[in-house]
Design a protein around this nucleic acid. Structure first.
Lengths: 211, 211
DNA sequence: GTCTATATATGGATAGAC
DNA sequence: GTCTATCCATATATAGAC
């Protein structure tokens, strides 16, 4: 949405290439020379568009967030029943996270990052909305469930699901990876039943199955 | 503890320091100088114990895995009902992942890593056992649930839960972080009910089960 | 086994030509 | 706006003294 046609093409090309490279190797795993080479310019050209590597990196993260903003908005739409919103969130995010692996990995790297300032940027601009929406939805569906644990469970489940694909293949060699929408439906059902099952028994002093 | 007293103390000290540093900043974010400085020796001393940085890194990952082997074995014990095993897995892993944040972050970095060889090492020595155990347990509890989706959901939920702590704090400022055992109980209930709720869908007669 | 000293490569960043 | 050329800090790794 915020793409201004007046702004140089090279700037956008740099950002697009940077998303891939930083997603693949992380901030310190990519040099300005790597980026310049991938774009097909000299390192000096990068410094015309960005004052330093740190700034280029932050702009890269913003760029990756921006290009998924529409999808994110759709997944967070507030119409429908809480159950519908819950499933829409999971489907929307699984698709988003599946379709843009560079975005997914960049977000995962940012979460691992210890730079407080950059983490603040990511959490404020990306994850906070999702988290608060989930808290709201979950509280409506099942007030007695710990909404924080549930929200975190949903976010981690969608955000990291596809990173486990290699394990699936190793455990059952000729397993064909299901379509993302199929995964979303299974995941949504599991988590939705998890919510409702807990709601069934509100007072849990001995909350586990009898042994 | 599998620490062999015959092996040099410095080697172990290097590995211990390396776990922290690599967990914090990743492979390319840590230099041999950084490690040497943290240990209190010169870089040359590192090269007496390890041929190069790559090898030191791989040994560091092994070291971090080894020091948690006992806990992992306990969490994977095969006695008890499937439901008991399921809860034991979640409790054991949440505790392990909570108590050794360096191990947790190192594993997360390895999962993000694109080096196929190193990923194979991690998946074979650490994650495969967990994954296969979960597939087995889940199939016993709820044969009609997609066991792969469920196993991946459980692993991602425990492995990444604590990385979302900053978000929790941002969303509700004075929220006190609950004890790991409390988190494990909530998470276990949600996921166990998710399993059973889905199972109820097909064969609707067992609301109360085994002894 | 650990140090000093150093070879050699690669990193971020800038000046000035065009 | 992009390039050539280069500065300078930092990186991995090794040789040889002790």
């Amino acid at each position: 949405m915020s793409i201004n046609p007046n702004i140089s093409n090279l700037r956008h090309e740099i950002l697009g290439v940077s998303v891939s490279l930083f997603a693949e190797a992380g901030y310190s795993g990519v040099s300005m020379r790597d980026i310049a080479k991938s774009v097909g310019v000299t390192p000096a050209a990068l410094y015309y568009h960005f004052p330093d590597k740190q700034t280029l990196y932050v702009e890269t993260v913003r760029f990756a967030l921006d290009r998924n903003e529409n999808q994110i908005e759709k997944a967070l739409a507030t119409d429908g029943t809480p159950e519908e919103r819950f499933m829409r969130f999971i489907k929307g995010y699984i698709l988003l996270i599946h379709d843009d692996p560079d975005f997914r990995r960049l977000v995962q790297r940012e979460i691992l990052d210890t730079n407080a300032e950059r983490q603040e940027l990511l959490f404020q601009t990306a994850l906070k909305k999702e988290y608060c929406s989930l808290i709201e939805i979950v509280s409506q569906i099942a007030p007695s469930v710990n909404a924080h644990v549930m929200a975190v469970t949903v976010i981690t489940s969608v955000l990291y699901h596809f990173e486990m694909a290699p394990i699936k293949r190793m455990a059952s060699a000729q397993l064909e990876e299901p379509l993302p929408i199929t995964i979303a439906e299974h995941l949504g059902q599991i988590l939705l039943y998890g919510l409702k099952g807990n709601e069934g028994q509100n007072t849990n002093e001995n909350s586990q199955t009898e042994t």
